[in-house]
Write a protein that binds this DNA or RNA. Structure first.
Length: 420
RNA sequence: GGAGGGAUGCCGGAGCGGCCGAACGGGGCGGUCUUGAAAACCGCUGUGCGCGAGCACCGUGGGUUCGAAUCCCACUCCCUCCGCCA
């Protein structure tokens, strides 16, 4: 949720909103409604104070005076009820609009949209040429992925992960968990179905509703990331400063409708409706959140670098940020078959945007203030497998298991499958 | 799925429709005393909104009433029992 006070008082804050893609006139509408609401609140409060005082007098008044006083108080009550009704309508309209206002982009974020991300650094050599097979063809040849039967069972963009690939998935989960736990993140396996409220408070509704699967007649929603469940871990709580940063790692299956991506990335498992992911989530003191963001990014680099995937870090441009993020770094891995970098992980700083909805605060010497929340991908399994299938293909058609995963798989290599 | 019990402040726990933002106890903070500490005693001790007077909040949302923590309805969550279940 946007900070309405800052939106009206701080021109830089407002500019940050407008650097994102936001409907023209939305901010002005919100500010106008906000001004009307504050005026109405003052008026209603004053009237209610009079009504309350009148009621209290009745209890103290001698019995013979009561009927007249009750009548007077009743008149005030009616007037108050009418004004409260107007105020409630104003409140609801303001809330609806305010929920659509995105978190302002951080001043350091580059202007522009999808193609305007700034490259922060490039690590590792992309290498020349493409592999013999792209990830989808290789996975098919090895019997690692079955999308045909998945389409029968579930539809397009679903996959069975088969044979050794299923074990490599589990190895990735174990490896990523071990790394993040080593960095002080509390491991967890999170719920994948959440209420509407949880979606909203995590910063996903109403803006990203089209990407989410609805279940049980709209009572519950399938999460697109365990971040949503993790954010609710301190809902409504005021944490002592000593407990921050509070760091959690969540493993969950993630579900995404991928609406609006028809025809994009249809081969293999680059873009699927369902995948498993280990996610990092931090609650930080406001003054520490930028450092925490760097820290999360460093852990992502450690994991991807450790897998031997060449990558670059990009600073996402304002227009491509999404509603909740004030700043977002993506790590793009080098995908040889496409000869370009493709998104592999992502980490965002939401500042207090989601904390305001969640009511998660920190009490320190400075007083009580909203926490900052941050999230980052430790390992999105299917997406990572895509890169491994291309980088770890061997000349003879076999698959080499990355060193760091071997302790978990128990095998170092998968022999090429002989075509039947 | 069925039956019953419950939800109050940091914790425990009272609470008659008006004197309740809320007794009492514990904890925490400050002070007196002490070389220091303990004990004892005294004081303070929720949050949000508003420039402020003030307003809101006793699980959540409605309702009754001049007036609701208190009465009514719905919902959520927790506990007990029965059933079912990996």
């Amino acid at each position: 949720m946007i900070d309405l006070r800052r939106l009206r008082d701080d021109p830089g804050y407002r500019r940050g909103v407008e650097r994102k893609r936001v409907r023209a006139g939305l901010v002005d509408e919100v500010l106008e409604l906000d001004a009307r609401r504050r005026a109405a609140v003052a008026q209603v409060d004053a009237l209610r104070a009079r009504q309350k005082a009148a009621s209290k007098e009745i209890g103290k008044a001698p019995p013979q005076d009561r009927p007249a006083r009750i009548e007077a108080a009743a008149a005030l009550k009616e007037e108050l009820a009418a004004q409260e009704k107007d105020l409630a309508a104003l409140d609801a309209r303001l809330r609806d609009l305010a929920l659509q206002v995105p978190n302002p982009a951080h001043p350091a974020v580059p202007d522009g949209g999808e193609d305007d991300a700034a490259v922060v650094r490039t690590v590792g050599e992309p290498g020349a040429g493409a592999p013999a097979l792209d990830h989808a063809a290789f996975a098919d040849a090895m019997g690692f992925v079955d999308t045909e039967h998945a389409a029968e069972a579930s539809g397009s963009r679903f996959a069975y992960l088969m044979r050794e690939a299923a074990l490599v998935e589990l190895a990735l989960v174990c490896h990523a968990m071990r790394v993040v736990v080593g960095h002080g993140f509390v491991p967890s396996v999170t719920p994948t179905l959440v209420r509407e409220r949880t979606m909203e408070e995590a910063g996903f509704f109403p803006t990203d509703r089209a990407q989410v699967y609805e279940v049980d007649g709209g009572e519950l929603f399938l999460v697109g990331t365990s971040e949503i469940a993790l954010s609710a871990l301190h809902r409504g709580e005021t944490l002592p400063a000593e407990r921050l940063p509070a760091r959690y790692a969540g493993l969950s299956t993630c579900y995404r409708r991928e609406a609006g991506t028809y025809g994009k990335d249809t081969r293999g498992i680059f873009r699927v409706h369902q995948f498993d992911k280990v996610e990092m989530f931090s609650f930080a003191e406001p003054g520490d959140s930028e450092a925490e963001h760097e820290r999360i990014l460093a852990i992502e680099e450690e994991i991807i670098g450790g897998l031997g995937i060449p990558y670059r870090v990009v600073d996402i441009a304002a227009g491509d940020l999404g509603a909740a993020a004030a700043r977002k770094f993506d790590i793009e891995g080098w995908l040889p078959s496409e000869g370009r970098y493709r998104e592999l992980t992502s980490c965002s700083n939401y500042l207090d945007f989601s904390a305001r909805r969640l009511g998660t605060r920190v009490r320190s010497a400075r007083g009580t203030e909203l926490v900052h929340t941050l999230n980052g991908t430790a390992c999105a399994i299917s997406r990572t497998l895509v890169f491994l299938f291309e980088h770890y293909q061997e000349p003879d058609g076999g698959f080499a298991v990355p060193d760091v995963l071997r302790p978990y798989t128990g095998f170092a290599r998968v022999e090429p499958r002989v075509p039947q």
